[in-house]
Amino acid sequence: MRSVELFAGIPVTDYERSLPWYERLLGSPPDFLATETEAVWQVAGQGWVYVVQRPERAGQALLTMLVPDLDRRVAEIAGRGIEPAVSETYDNGTRKVTYRDPDGNEVGFGGVPGG
């Protein structure tokens, strides 16, 4: 099986306004700046999330990351001043919490029962 590296992009209208929001959401400054208007975070071994200024595409991203302790993640994010827009529990017990950035992009964190 081939190794895969995943880069998931989130287009934003205003990079300077969005960068601090994503730093609070993800809990750190970016791992690197790809360009003057693109920031990149490593969120898993081979998984990266990047925020890039692309006003013509802003507000349409949908991204969900599964985390081992959803309650802890939500509490940490709340401690940095961001509250979820939506919290859901599916029939199988899986939970998902969704945040919306200033452009309306949706970034979710999910947790499985017992995880």
Rank of each mutant, 00 (worst) to 15 (best):
G104L: 05
G47K: 01
A85F: 04
P68H: 07
P55D: 01
P55K: 08
A44C: 09
S87F: 08
E83L: 04
Y99Q: 13
G114F: 13
S18K: 00
P113N: 11
Q46L: 04
Y90M: 09
D31N: 08
I77F: 02
W41R: 01
E88T: 02
W21Y: 13
T13D: 09
L19I: 02
I77W: 00
T94D: 11
L62M: 14
G93T: 10
R95W: 11
G27V: 12
P11D: 04
F7I: 15
G110I: 08
E16K: 04
Y90V: 04
M1R: 09
R54F: 03
V51C: 10
D101E: 13
E56F: 10
W21H: 06
R2P: 08
S87C: 09
P30S: 03
E83S: 01
P30F: 06
P30K: 07
T37E: 10
V112M: 11
S3N: 14
W21V: 04
D69R: 03
G47E: 00
V52Y: 08
R100K: 13
P30Y: 04
L63A: 12
D103F: 13
L6T: 15
N105D: 02
R100I: 03
D31W: 06
A61M: 09
L63G: 10
N92Y: 11
F7V: 15
A39W: 00
E106T: 05
L25Q: 12
A85C: 04
A39H: 05
A75V: 01
Q46A: 09
Y90A: 10
Q46I: 03
T98G: 04
G115D: 15
L26C: 08
R100N: 05
S87H: 09
V86M: 11
S28C: 13
V97Y: 00
D71N: 05
S3K: 12
A34G: 04
Q46N: 09
M65D: 02
F32C: 02
F7C: 14
S28T: 09
L62C: 13
A34V: 01
K96S: 12
K96D: 15
P68Y: 05
D101S: 12
E5D: 14
V67H: 06
A78M: 06
I77R: 00
R73W: 03
Y22F: 13
A78T: 00
A85K: 02
P113L: 12
G47T: 00
G115Y: 15
V107C: 05
R2C: 04
F7E: 13
F32R: 06
T94R: 14
A39R: 00
R72S: 12
I82V: 14
L33I: 01
R100V: 04
V49R: 05
D101N: 14
G9Y: 15
L33R: 08
P84G: 06
T94C: 09
A75L: 07
V12D: 02
D14G: 03
E23D: 14
R17A: 14
E38M: 01
K96V: 15
L63R: 12
G115E: 15
L6C: 14
